[in-house]
Nucleic acid binder design. Structure first.
Length: 742
DNA sequence: CCATAAGCAACTAGG
DNA sequence: TTGCTTATGG
């Protein structure tokens, strides 16, 4: 099972690798742990190894399994392997844990108590299932918080344990087990898996059916795992099972970048890798190719404050670079304002917007930053927050698709039964749901039964009949239609767009646009995967993430949470909200686990290539009230000689920001904020176009009222102008419909 | 049954 | 602050 000697690396690969990377790529046989520091060429090492195996070691692409955490990482890996190997590379299995498990489960669905076209449920669907369970058990959210029940179920599965067989010591434990039992039963009836089920059921499948496990063990002779520090226990067990007969297992990770403890990731997996896999070899990649020496040393000093880590020190041949700037602003608005101004300044000194990023700890922080960017006309994208596939209108359309595919999906059916409103109200639905419970049938069957037995009042009954008829009609056709065609048909037949258009609000308009996007996504999917089936598309939708969706191709500043930033890099990085209680988060301080927060901060810092700004506010609005905040402890843990502290203490001055209050800036403040040329207010932002259209200009639109110009694309009467309307927010308008003044 | 108003809770983080 | 659930009147 061990390969004694390995053939030499081809020159074209070898010349792009340092000695440690080479060692990792050429590793022969047995388990290998690559401790890959931030920016040390981890992806290159993995992809080159795959190329090496195929090109030099007579390994077939299909004998390779590479597991990642995000679709994005999987996509990048596929791309890079393809550029190294060309045509045959598609036969290598490169995917996320979840997608890989979903694929396996589709093949053996019946053994997991599902059909091949099972549905994947997200957090909201899970909540809906739990709601039904609560109703059946006569429970309410007060006697058992739903969040707790979900956590119980999920954490058991993450640990590879059966939530149905939990401890029953205390009354609450008994209750949790009971809820879990009903939940799992419901999920089976619904023909659905939740995210953690995908991993858990695959693990169970392998444990109960050794012959199936063997199929995959034989197939995958070489296994690679990316971001190993983020694996949880089930993932560990899956890897162990799959790799027990493989020729090589290579895991890559960095214990200092383990930031998913809250979703079950166990840092011990990487810290104790060699205990789980005897005979492990370890290669450490310590040379950083990304950041300036100052940034690297700063991050390195911070992380040494952690106890639970493998000691290591990164180094770089990169120049020292400029000092790290630490800015302390008076409040959160000032902070956002500062960032937007500094961004403008960076653009002037040659940084391009897409090479700049702003990281924050919590999503709630994004709003002010977004506003500040809009007001200054800074092109920006917010990654995360409410994801595309979780927007109500998208979920509605997908719910229709799910019901068409699987009539037993009562969760989806409940969602759409009266959306758009068709006269089937709460009382009617309750009647039918009760019938369903009594007869132990799904909602769809209950609807039919209720009609048959004539137990509903006339109005609702005819509505239901009509609804079922349309559903029937589309379902019959669906088999012959593509996803795109099915979707357009249902949007039309059920009047989804019509219903939104009637509302005639800007929000509804943007929803209509989103439905259009969904149709695009469907046809893209067909083109990309050559697959016209609903199953495949729905699976893609369920597993899609916002980072996948984010359009990084535009030249825009990226605003995102630190968690989403892992694996990315930017010339200039702002870390905002560096305050105790926010970053590190209050929760982690209470729980006495600041180490993960520190790793998170480390991840954020090491994304920066050239410039790093550490920003905090002295006062911050949370909910309704403003609170005074203390500097983040992390700011005290970094070497001061690497930092230029530019703190502006304004707590005693009642200063109002010009940007947000519509006033001019305080010139004194401006100077203290920055010695150099910061544009004092939006009225000073340079005019883009001699037609009299300039950024920041006040304009009037017959429908949308008054607003200010944020961005102009093109010129002449047909130019596209982005305007921030007081009443209607940001919209794109053709220039000829805009009039001067308010 | 439905639309709107009012009242109230929620904000770590994500596949 | 937003976004949900509940109350109210049509």
């Amino acid at each position: 099972m061990h390969m004694p000697t390995m053939p030499p690396l081809p020159d074209d690969l070898a010349e792009k690798l340092n000695p440690a990377q080479k060692k990792a790529v050429e590793h022969a046989g047995g388990p290998l742990l690559i401790l890959a520091g931030a920016g040390s060429g981890k992806t290159r090492t993995i992809t080159f190894r795959i190329a090496y195996l195929v090109r030099s070691c007579n390994v077939m692409p299909e004998e390779i399994l590479a597991l990642t955490f995000t679709n994005k990482a999987a996509g990048e890996m596929k791309e890079r392997v393809e550029s190294l190997l060309g045509g045959s590379s598609y036969r290598a299995w490169i995917g996320t844990f979840h997608a890989t498990c979903a694929k396996i489960l589709r093949r053996h669905a019946e053994l997991a108590g599902r059909t091949t076209s099972f549905t994947i449920y997200d957090r909201n669907d899970q909540r809906a299932v739990l709601k039904r369970v609560y109703k059946d058990l006569n429970l309410d959210d007060k006697s058992l918080a739903m969040g707790l029940a979900l956590y119980y179920i999920e954490s058991h599965k993450n640990k590879g344990l059966d939530p149905v067989k939990g401890s029953k010591k205390r009354a609450i434990d008994k209750l949790l087990v009971k809820v879990a039992q009903h939940y799992q039963k419901k999920m089976k009836e619904l023909d659905a898996f939740d995210f953690s089920d995908l991993l858990w059921f695959t693990h169970r499948l392998f444990r109960k059916n050794r012959e199936i496990l063997e199929i995959y063990q034989k197939r995958w002779k070489h296994i690679l795992v990316d971001e190993y520090q983020d694996t949880n226990t089930v993932q560990y067990l899956l890897i162990k099972e799959l790799a027990s007969k493989s020729e090589s297992l290579v895991v890559v990770g960095d214990d200092d970048q383990s930031i998913y403890g809250w979703r079950g990731a166990d840092i011990e997996n990487i810290l104790r890798f060699e205990h789980g896999f005897p005979g492990t070899k370890i290669v450490t990649l310590q040379e950083n190719y990304r950041s300036t020496a100052n940034i690297l040393n700063l991050a390195g000093s911070l992380i040494t404050h952690n106890k639970r880590r493998k000691p290591k020190e990164l180094f770089t041949a990169n120049p020292e670079g400029s000092l790290i700037e630490s800015w302390s602003l008076s409040d959160d608005r000032e902070e956002a304002d500062f960032v937007s101004r500094k961004l403008k300044e960076l653009f002037e000194t040659g940084f391009s917007p897409s090479e700049c990023a702003v990281f924050f700890r919590t999503n709630a922080q994004s709003r002010l930053l977004e506003q500040a960017c809009s007001l200054r006309g800074i092109p920006h994208v917010v990654v995360g927050g409410h994801r595309f596939f979780e927007r109500a209108e998208i979920k509605d359309a997908l719910a229709y698709l799910r019901v068409i595919k699987n009539h037993a999906d009562s969760i989806a059916l409940t969602r759409i039964i009266n959306y758009p409103p068709r006269g089937i109200g709460k009382t009617t639905l309750d009647k039918v749901l009760n019938l369903a419970t009594r007869k132990d049938i799904c909602l769809f069957d209950a609807l039919n039964l209720a009609i048959e037995r004539n137990i509903l009042s006339k109005g609702p009954a005819s509505s239901i009949r009509n609804f079922l008829d349309i559903l029937q009609k589309i379902s019959e056709k669906a088999g012959r239609l593509s996803v795109y065609e099915t979707m357009s048909l249902l949007i039309d037949e059920f009047g989804l767009v019509r219903h939104l258009q009637q509302q005639d609000t800007p929000e509804a308009d943007s929803r209509v646009e989103n439905l259009g996007e969904l149709l695009n996504a469907a046809s893209d999917y067909e083109e990309m995967y050559g697959d016209r089936s609903l199953d495949g598309f729905l699976e893609k939708a369920a597993l899609a993430t916002d980072v996948d969706q984010a359009d990084m191709t535009k030249d825009s500043v990226v605003l995102m949470t630190v968690h989403l930033a892992k694996g990315l890099e930017f010339d200039a990085v702002f870390i905002v909200g560096l305050e105790d209680g926010l970053f590190p988060h209050a929760r982690s301080i209470e729980d006495n686990d600041v180490e993960e927060e520190r790793r998170l901060c480390y991840v954020a810092m090491t994304r920066a290539k050239k410039k790093l700004f550490l920003v905090n506010a002295q006062r911050r609005a949370t909910f309704g009230t403003t609170r005074v905040s203390k500097d983040s402890r992390f700011l005290n843990e970094i070497p001061p000689d690497l930092v230029e502290f530019k703190n502006v203490h304004l707590a005693d001055r009642s200063y109002k920001s010009g940007l947000f209050q519509g006033q001019r800036f305080d010139p004194e403040f401006d100077q203290s904020l920055d010695r150099a040329r910061v544009p004092p207010g939006i009225e000073h932002i340079e005019p883009v176009w001699e037609h009299g259209i300039s950024l920041g200009m006040e304009v009037h639109h017959p429908t949308f009222g008054t607003g200010r110009i944020l961005e102009v694309r093109g010129n002449g009467p047909d130019a596209r102008v982005d305007v921030n309307f007081i009443q209607h927010g940001r919209r794109t308008i053709i220039a000829r419909f805009l009039f001067p003044g308010g």
